[in-house]
């Protein structure tokens, strides 16, 4: 082979015999991925969420004894020293757990 023209000839041969790759699978795969990656419109997202919330509320209302729960709420509430101490204890425990959870990785 002549050194000066071999590369050009080789590329010419390659160009002339370049294979054609079928688009059948490739094209449909590209379009499928594009469709999957398309963002859902805002109104659609909100509608779906609202419908889900409504269905959830309806199911909860039919299965859950809300009236009994409401009746169970005390109508009178006396704040005494023991109640105050209990509330303070619960708040302290909650703060301690929150602090531990937040700082766990640093400790």
């Amino acid at each position: 082979m002549k050194q000066s023209t071999d590369i050009e000839n080789l590329f010419n041969q390659a160009r002339n015999s370049e294979p054609y790759f079928s688009n059948r699978r490739f094209g449909s795969r590209v379009l499928t991925v594009i469709k999957l990656q398309e963002p859902v419109p805002f109104w659609k997202e909100v509608t779906i969420e609202m419908l889900g919330a409504l269905i959830g509320c309806a199911l909860a209302y039919s299965f859950f004894p809300f009236n009994d729960l409401i009746a169970g709420i005390p109508t009178k509430f006396v704040i005494g020293p023991s109640v105050l101490l209990s509330i303070a204890g619960v708040i302290s425990c909650t703060c301690a757990i929150a602090y531990w959870t937040a700082e766990r990785s640093r400790l």
Binding site: E18, P19, F21, N23, G27, V30, L31
Partner: peptide
């Protein structure tokens, strides 16, 4: 467009 250009690009 994909069909038109895919083969060249893939090659």
């Amino acid at each position: 467009l994909v069909e038109r250009h895919q083969s060249d690009l893939r090659y």
